[in-house]
Amino acid sequence: MNVFDIIGPVMIGPSSSHTAGAVRIGRVANKLMDDRTPRTVEITLSGSFAQTYRGHGTDKALLAGIMGYHSYAEEIRDALEIAKARGIDYTFVKKDIPGAHPNTAVIRFVLEDGTEGSVQGASVGGGNIRVDLVNGMKVDFNGDYHTMLVMHLDRPGVIASVTSLMRYEYADLNISNFHLSREARGGNAIMTIEIDTLPPDSLIEDIRKLEYVTNALLIRKL
């Protein structure tokens, strides 16, 4: 904690959890889309988000984040209109997700080239978030660090090949948190790797070339 966690953040009101945190969840989707504009977006609101989203501007906040705006951007207020002007076909669905944190949103998007993706995140207070699912797979990060997501097939040695690459080719990078989840033995798996410093783009390119790795993404610190 530092002094700016108390005197700050600078944000668009009215609520750090229902507005600022919602922007941050949207921004995770924006990073996942590599800052491209989606063709369609479907946003599911669960729990308290579903009940109070209109009064808190949670819908505007999520869309603003999806479009890449920060939680201090005044454009948040006009996010619905801006999204329309950009040709984004968006819908909001109110639906309780059993077992999810009370302030949970799921963002599903389709890009112009047909690429699909999804993010499920929760706003856990004070503008802080927790990302629970990416493309349907369990992850564990909060956007406070640069986060690398490595999608791969569940095979022996894949983790070692990724971390060795980091150790020997990118010696300055320090992993601060590591999480692995898989759909089934031998099936699709995903590594969540939080890193203290921003890795160069070449790291992602190099990891994508590794055997059994299907994709790798970098979500910069939010």
């Binding site: 953040p9 944000m11 009101g13 009215p14 609520s15 600022a20 005044e74």
Partner: peptide
């Protein structure tokens, strides 16, 4: 009031109490 109308504020320490400081 600025906070309640989706204006820009500094949380101090929170958005709900942002008018005092």
């Amino acid at each position: 009031g600025c906070n309640a109308s989706m204006g820009r504020i500094v949380a101090a320490p929170t958005a709900g109490s942002c008018g005092i400081l």
